Each structure stands twice: as C-alpha cells, then as structure tokens.
Amino acid sequence: MNNLKTLKYVLVAALMVGFTSCDSLLDDVEPSTSVSAEVVLTSEEGVDALRASMYSKIRENFGFTTEYFIGPSAFADETRNRPGSTRYQALTVATGTSGGTAHLNNWGLYEIIQDANLIIGAVEPSVFEDPATLDLYRGEALALRAFAMHTMVRVYGYEPGNFSVGPQANWNAGIVIRTEPVLDLSDADTRARSTVGEVYTQILNDLSDAKTLLAGENADNRYVTEAFVDALSA
C-alpha cells in the first residue's frame, strides 16, 4: 500500500512538472497569436508554410477554380442557366457581382502577390541546405505573381491594342504593380496605377524568370510547372 502511495505522489509530481514545462513553452511563443515575418523567413519550415499559404489562397477560392474557367465561355455567350437555376446567372448575363469585379477584392490577389514577393525577395539562400529548393519556390512564386497580375489587369484594364476603340479611347490605366516584399507597415506606400503595357511587361518578365527557374519541372502538377508558365505566356 505504501508503495502505491509513493507511486501516486511520484506521478502527481511528474504531471506537475510536465504541466509547468508545457506552460513555459506556451509562454515563449513569439508572438502568442501569430508568427512574425522574420521567424517565417529564416527557417525551412517557415518558408514551406509561406509557400503553402500562397497556394491555399488560390485553392480555397471559388473565383480561381470554377468561375475562372467558365467565365470566358459565359461572357462569350456559350453558357446558359437551366430553368430555376441562379448560381451562375451573373456570369451568364455579364452582370452582378458573381465572377465580376466586386468579387476580385475577396479573391486575395494582392495577398497572393505579397506571399510571392516574400518568397522572391525576402528569403536568404542560406535558409535551405539545397539552393535548388529555393530556386524552385521562387520560380513558382514568380509564375503565381504573374497569374495574379494577369487576372487583375484583364478586369481592371483593357486588353493591349484596344485603347483607341469606343469610349475608352486614350485610357490605358492598368493596376498598381507591387514587386517588393512588405515586412512592416512602413514598407507600404500609395502609388499610382501603372499602364496596361507596363503591367504586361512585368508579367512577361516574371514568366521569363519563372521558366528559367522551373526548367524541366513538370512531374508534379499539384504545383506550378514549366508547362503552366508556357501556357500563361501564350
């Protein structure tokens, strides 16, 4: 009986030490509700999480999946709603907010660009033991930054070569170009929209750099591949 009591006290003491240790670990989390950019960018695990965040913003968004692919057909009058269905009505008649410019604000396009910018310009090569890993990630980030910019400029600007047609004559505003990583609020600024031509130049430059970094990378289409870059370039 005494041995049982002794064992019980030992277990209680061990649990108390364990809980104290766990508590101290939780106290040391920096910060307690999130992880700073500096921490994310200085470890392989952090950069892997950043890469996952960039892809997740696309996969979780209806606008980048179904609507992205049916939108062009809808605007070309190649789709119709069956009787009683309203799910894609706004796309079918080219009105409303579904798939339109109002929903672009909710697509997280600049958030995707921010993740990409961090991978492209804020991760030191020494973070990875194999430099080829960072080259791969940067190639993916360049392609997805181009993809996000292309999505926005097609909606908020006119296609190149159409500036002298109709009421939009001589209006060639595109979108705000951001290619620098924002690590602090002081890094953000207000800037004017670039012209459509300037945006397309940036897109094509990103795709050219991405193709170099992703040369021969076509085995895993869960991620951006060289073929994806070629398709978007076309």
Rank of each mutant, 00 (worst) to 15 (best):
S32Q: 12
A94M: 04
R154F: 07
I203H: 05
F128T: 10
A143P: 08
G63T: 07
K8D: 01
G71Q: 13
D130C: 03
Y68H: 11
V39W: 09
M1N: 07
K8E: 06
D130F: 02
E226F: 00
Y156V: 04
P167A: 08
M54D: 06
G108L: 03
G216H: 05
A13K: 02
V12S: 04
L183P: 06
P83H: 02
A74C: 10
Y55V: 03
V182T: 11
I70D: 02
A215P: 02
L118R: 14
A143L: 15
Q202G: 05
D130G: 02
E45W: 02
V155Y: 13
L183Y: 08
P125Q: 04
Y223F: 15
S36D: 08
K211N: 05
F163P: 01
D230W: 05
I175W: 10
H103M: 15
L136H: 09
N106W: 11
Y200R: 08
L207C: 03
V93R: 13
A192M: 05
F128M: 04
L213N: 08
A169L: 08
S186H: 08
I175Y: 06
V153S: 03
E159S: 14
V229E: 01
M152Q: 13
A192R: 12
L232C: 09
G108F: 02
V17C: 14
F163K: 09
A74F: 07
N61C: 10
Y110K: 03
M1H: 12
K5A: 11
